[in-house]
């Protein structure tokens, strides 16, 4: 069970697409920084629908996205303490 750490926008970098090529169904994804913007796009929401996703609350609030992110059961909004916990709950972290 791996935590995949994406920290760039899907429009600038294919880190997330590459991650999705190799991801296992049980893995999770942390969409940090501009990576989280893809959640505003329905096509990306669908591509990511089967994975457990984490998003940092500071990243969301910094971007004024609190009311705009989809209310979806697979998305967990976390703080940095929970980010640390998530790294320990997974066997390793891959930063793409």
């Amino acid at each position: 069970m791996i935590l995949h750490h994406i920290q760039s926008s899907v429009t600038a970098d294919n880190a997330l697409s590459t991650c999705l090529r190799y991801i296992d169904a049980q893995d999770s994804i942390l969409l940090a920084d501009d990576a989280l913007n893809c959640l505003l796009n329905t096509q990306w929401q669908q591509r990511l629908a089967d994975f457990k996703l984490y998003v940092l609350i500071e990243d969301i609030e910094a971007r004024g996205l609190s009311e705009r992110l989809p209310q979806s059961a697979n998305i967990s909004i976390i703080d940095y303490d929970q980010f640390v916990l998530a790294t320990l709950q997974h066997t390793k972290v891959i930063t793409w």
Binding site: I2, A15, Y22, D24, K92, I94, T95, W96
Partner: peptide, 10 residues
């Protein structure tokens, strides 16, 4: 290979 590794760096 990714699953078997202890660490994966990109």
């Amino acid at each position: 290979l990714i699953q078997q590794a202890n660490e994966v760096v990109v």
